Amino acid sequence: MTAELKLGINVGYWQRDADDQTDTVLAAERCGYDSVFTAEAYGSDAFTPLTWYAARTSRIKLGTAVAQISARTPAATAMHALTLDALSGGRVILGLGASGPQVVEGWYGQPFPKPLARTREYLGIVRQVWRRDAPVTSAGPHYPLPLPGGAGLGKPLKSIVHPVRADIPVYLGAEGPKNVALAAEIAQGWLPLFVDPAQIEPVFGTSLADRPDGFEIAATVVTIVTDDLPAALEFAKIPVAFYIGGMGARQRNFHLDMIGRLGYAEEAARVQDLFLAGRRDEAIRAVPDELADAISLLGPIGRIKERLQLWRDSPVTTVLIAGVRDEPTLRAIKNIADS
């Protein structure tokens, strides 16, 4: 159980045809929300919108959920984070994730195998950059520094900028038990997606057993405040179907596996089949109502209050509200969370 459940917002991917979400971020800050998180897949990046919001706010924490490790070298990610952390007065939370083989190899042109080992090595370099204890080196094998071969002139270097914080918080986006265990071992937090609060302990209790004191679990939760619960359920199913069907290969889809761990393996396979067959509307309808409801906050504000208690009773420390953009609704949710 979480003693004090914090609220943040996840504004997701920046889209060219979408309204700027500065107003939403400012509203969240006024309402006392703890953090705002941005995302990236294979379009917009996570850091640029976050910098945009950082320049217009003064208190709210600034997180990436998640920056993909194959998108940037460890040193480049460390530079992004330390720069934004300094400009924002020490408000950055670096959320990192390995993504999946379709994106890593198809978009970034990087090898996907051994994602846990790559993540561990990657984060080790990032923290070397921030600490500035010595010139940065790494024995590899995934990110050797200096690079073997090449011109033969690589030199270990130390950041010319002294970070505001040498211990910027790092959260890992993870869905598999081993990856969640890695987050508990080497990071300050975990960023789960599509998680049922009532099943966190049964599914991930072993992975989280050795997490340190103060370990954060910041769960993104689709939230729709409305009197029309059936309509809210249909809307909440859209991202589930998209991630099961379109954000991973048929042979390897971590989101599908995650839904399977929640007890919906057959249903998830059906959703994937329909989505990959081009029958997307049917795929969305095939997402079980009880699944969409369990991983979301849906319905009238009174029902949201009841459902929020499930998250308060779980190990989750922060609920990242996704999908709410207007200040009155953000304030109403904050009020029930504080009550």
Rank of each mutant, 00 (worst) to 15 (best):
Glu105Ala: 10
Trp107Val: 15
Trp107Asp: 08
Trp107Glu: 13
Tyr108Phe: 15
Tyr108Thr: 13
Tyr108Ile: 11
Gly109Gln: 10
Gly109Val: 07
Gly109Met: 07
Gln110Asp: 06
Pro111Gly: 14
Pro111Ser: 11
Phe112Ile: 13
Phe112Ser: 07
Phe112Cys: 05
Phe112Pro: 08
Pro113Trp: 00
Pro113Arg: 05
Pro113Asp: 00
Pro113Gly: 02
Lys114Thr: 04
Lys114Tyr: 10
Pro115Val: 07
Pro115Thr: 13
Pro115Ala: 04
Pro115Lys: 09
Pro115His: 08
Arg118Ile: 02
Thr119Glu: 12
Thr119Trp: 06
Thr119Pro: 06
Leu123Arg: 10
Leu123Gly: 11
Gly124Phe: 03
Gly124Glu: 13
Ile125His: 01
Val126Met: 01
Arg127Pro: 01
Arg127Thr: 01
Gln128Met: 10
Gln128Gly: 11
Gln128Trp: 02
Val129Cys: 05
Trp130Arg: 14
Trp130Gln: 13
Arg131Glu: 00
Arg131Asp: 01
Arg132Pro: 14
Asp133Phe: 02
Asp133Arg: 01
Ala134Trp: 00
Ala134Ser: 13
Ala134Leu: 02
Pro135Gln: 01
Pro135Gly: 06
Val136Gly: 13
Thr137Ala: 07
Ser138Thr: 05
Ala139Gln: 02
Ala139Glu: 03
Ala139Ser: 10
Gly140Gln: 10
Gly140Arg: 11
Pro144Glu: 13
Pro144Arg: 08
Leu145His: 12
Leu145Trp: 04
Pro146Asp: 14
Pro146Ser: 14
Pro146Arg: 09
